[in-house]
């Protein structure tokens, strides 16, 4: 029994080392937070459309899985992410909707005509209130909604091709997108 006590420091070391090993691994981003709305219904929105009279609403998205991407023309990481969205749009597996976050509509239009438009529809969120309701704390952020409008996944920061292949596409498959 007393002998076993000598193992205690070793055990404590193993626990602490295990914690550091997971918390300090290079792929662990401390700034990435889980969404508070995960597996909860997405907050309702009703936004003016970019370049069309049709408004972008949550109800309009329901019925099939969808991807919502918060972007802005002033956001550099959004430009890094852009080709990945274009590729995803080309695969035609899911409808991608854009929400232009705190951006002027002309600037967003310019951004999309220059680089290409991966979105089925774009809504304008000039004061960032829809972003606030989603818990957006920086652009870009990407949300995956199921057919009932429930948030199933959030990607913080630019979406990588790897994240699309490893996480987004399998999730969409599970949700029954076609």
């Amino acid at each position: 029994m007393t002998r076993a006590l000598f193992l205690l420091p070793l055990l404590l070391f193993a626990v602490v080392a295990g914690y550091f090993f997971t918390a300090l691994r290079p792929s662990h981003d401390t700034r990435e937070l889980p969404s508070a709305l995960l597996d909860k219904p997405a907050p309702a929105f009703d936004l003016a459309g970019l370049g069309s009279d049709k408004r972008l609403t949550l109800d309009g998205l329901k019925g099939r899985p969808s991807v919502i991407n918060f972007f802005a023309s002033w956001c550099a990481p959004c430009r890094i992410e852009h080709p990945v969205l274009m590729r995803l749009a080309k695969q035609d597996k899911v409808a991608i909707y854009g929400i232009s976050y705190k951006d002027k509509s002309e600037a967003s239009t310019n951004f999309l005509t220059t680089l290409g438009d991966p979105y089925r529809q774009v809504g304008l969120d000039p004061d960032g209130r829809t972003g606030l309701n989603f818990g957006v704390y920086g652009v870009p952020e990407t949300y995956v909604l199921d057919g009932n409008g429930v948030i199933r996944k959030r990607f913080v920061g630019p979406l990588s091709a790897e994240a699309v292949d490893r996480e987004l596409l399998p999730l969409l498959k599970k949700l029954g997108a076609s």
């Binding site: 937070l33 508070a36 709305l37 907050p43 606030l132 309701n133 989603f134 818990g135 704390y137």
Partner: peptide, 8 residues
């Protein structure tokens, strides 16, 4: 605020 951003 917490319902949007989590208890963090």
């Amino acid at each position: 605020v917490v319902s949007r951003y989590g208890s963090f």
